[in-house]
Amino acid sequence: MSNVAIFEQRAADTIAAESPLHYSLHRHAVSAQGADPKEGSAVAMDERAFLGHLIVRGTAGVLRAAIKQVVGIALPETACGLNVEGGKSIQWLSPDEWLVILPPGEEFATENALRQALGDNAYAVVNVSGGQTVLTLSGPSAHEVLMKSTPCDVHPHAFPVGRGVSTVFAKTTVLLRRPDAKHWELVIRRSFADYLYRWLLDAGEEYGITTKHTENKDNNNE
């Protein structure tokens, strides 16, 4: 096991936690009741807060077996790949970099297990859970909201389920992913969270965008 200082970053459950979108959701939430009663809502936005995010770096040869053993999902080795299984996901970010997203609270144990499994190899695991959060967009007009925001081609032919890219989005950078046919996921930075949230509210207004406000810290909206 490598000689680095790691610690449990997640506060105890007794301490109130606030996601990067805490105030955005409080002040600017748009409930389904607010949508046009005739048109309804064609896009819904939701936050998947407090998930565990780990950046794992190293060559595929070094990481392949350890990731499979510890996380239980195959490492996506082709460019822009995204593997999703049982509430966990691994996204290809670069030829030597992947993002692992885990259910809330699993990141510390997973980091430890990965370090154990990787031993003396050259690699890096960094817990970035506090630095970013996940927004989901769903509904028939979700891709139209994306088309207004990113140069990335989001047509279903160009962006199939199981694809994830890092791209320009409303002048910031996001990780845009399609974990399943119904949802788009945006992994966004904490410092841009409120800005992007408001951008999406504005871009989604014509489609009657609605937001969910999930107070529950353990609710990962599965």
């Binding site: 460019a79 822009c80 030829p95 140069p151 990335c152 890219v165 791209t167």
Partner: peptide, 18 residues
């Protein structure tokens, strides 16, 4: 706007990303 082929992502991507 034009597209640039990234040899690592192995696809054409928007010039804005580069």
């Amino acid at each position: 706007m034009f597209y640039i082929h990234c040899p690592y992502c192995a696809e054409q991507r928007s010039e804005e990303e580069f």
